[in-house]
Design a protein around this nucleic acid. Sequence first.
DNA 1: TCATACTGTAATATTATCAATTACAGTTAC
DNA 2: GTAACTGTAATTGATAATATTACAGTATGA
Lengths: 139, 139
Amino acid sequence: MNSEFTIAVHSLVYLAYLPERMASSEMIAHNVGTHSARVRKVMSGLRKAGYVDTREGAGGGYKLTMDPNVVTLGDIYKVMAQGSLIPSWCTGDPGMDCVVGSNMNQVMFGIFCKAEKQLESHFTGITIQDVLSQIHACG
Amino acid sequence: MNSEFTIAVHSLVYLAYLPERMASSEMIAHNVGTHSARVRKVMSGLRKAGYVDTREGAGGGYKLTMDPNVVTLGDIYKVMAQGSLIPSWCTGDPGMDCVVGSNMNQVMFGIFCKAEKQLESHFTGITIQDVLSQIHACG
DNA sequence: TCATACTGTAATATTATCAATTACAGTTAC
DNA sequence: GTAACTGTAATTGATAATATTACAGTATGA
């Protein structure tokens, strides 16, 4: 699984947790446990998808624009990690003589696609606020 | 996703397809599109789990022992790729001061575990015979 | 207007993971 | 005894993930 998805979720939950709902890449990176450049890349994707606002320059940073009760992990998955379940490595070869060898690729692809849809719908059942609530329940 | 799972499924479907339900690692490797040593490693796991029988020596190879209508991809997943959905890379750090940073790891782990259970149950709904039937339907 | 504090992005290094390859001991059939 | 297999591990090579560095662009405030 793509770790950018996890970083994105963590960042959004962190923003939702902050009273101002705003933080710099440096602050987020420290909370997530990675480097600010990586956070900026992930946040750039979230901005393009409309989940955060960016302000460049001094005092700038990222601000959550969406309602944490509305945005789901499914939304984030679609933006950051869609297709991550399907293996890049495929077996068989369509040019083969054998029915099994020549069609396995296609059949497995179909199976993985369905699996991915189910995974997505699982994530769609969890909002950013849900994650934050679970975190508070940990304490 | 671990490609050993795909190799295992392909191998079992291939065995189920053969009239004798038997083949050497060389034959399987050719059909799958990888090397015999890799096939042997995967088949070794399937043997330990009881899905195939092995015969060493000349004229040996692997033989399907289970009913293709009974063995599911879920069974194979459990043996070959369990846990593959959970990212190895984790965000946050339990020793942190911030509630979010210190608990995110645990919460995300729980979410991924549930996701994995659903994935498993998706695979459990598909038998080796189902895959073979889908392949025949391709022609 | 200049220094400062940010984002955006790309390039490069560094690891980690995955897969191919090789090797060889052990086993069975003939 | 030889040939054809499996079992397993070690090594190499390829690819992907992550960290690091760098710097141009932009806003803020003295």
